[in-house]
Amino acid sequence: MTKAIAATSDYFTQIWQMRYFWLSLVIKDLRTRYRGSVIGMGWSLLHPIAMTAVFCLVYTTLFDVSLIEYAPFVLSGMTLWGFFMTVTHEASQTFLISQAYLRQNPAPLAIYPLRTTLCGSFHFLLAMLVLFVYTWVVQGFGNLTAFGYLLSSLVLLFVIGWSMACCCGILNVLFQDTQHLLQVFMQMMFYCSPVFYYPEMVEKRGMGWLVDINPFAACMELIRAPVLRSEAPEIQSVLFAGGFALVLLCTATCLLARYQRRLIFHL
């Protein structure tokens, strides 16, 4: 046990020592994405905002809901979903695009999924800022009182994201069709998660279990409660998301421990 703790702490020390390397790659990735685009950083906001506009156009009529409430609800869902897509679908390529470094230096593997997760986090936070400005204009600054809850939620989401990115990245090196399967899986989960519909809507129709057993739904509650309702997230969502984070973290740790030195043979 003591040995495992020492090894983990040593691993994190190595990651920290390499911070200038992975941070410079994150900055490079962000710069590359925005280079040549007229609206610069706003480019990353285009997708969630455009999708929100489309959902608002169609579903405010179909669901008979108020646009003022529905718009931030969908935007928060799309923003978080964008983050999940980055740490699954995009992260599955993380070791393949970094193999020039993996073949040059025996650095900790976790820095490459960290690079993808940090890029995704940047885009996520940028969209969250838009969401905040909207809520401040429409509802006032009430949600600032719940800022502490939001911070804890963000930490938990980061752990989930980094762990997911490690798992997807390693599995995609081992099994070549992982990325494709992830895309299919995430698309299915998109419709099974309360991204653009309220959880109550499915509950009323006796499909509440769809949300209850869905960890992505719990993650959405972690963000929506403090930002949209200025309150602490429901305890069962926190516990569910926490458990989800723990399972992912353990899986990522096992995969990293097993493949830290051997992944190179699969590249």
Partner: peptide
Amino acid sequence: RYRGFLQGET
């Protein structure tokens, strides 16, 4: 810079 950081430079 990238390669330097990879080698442990600050």
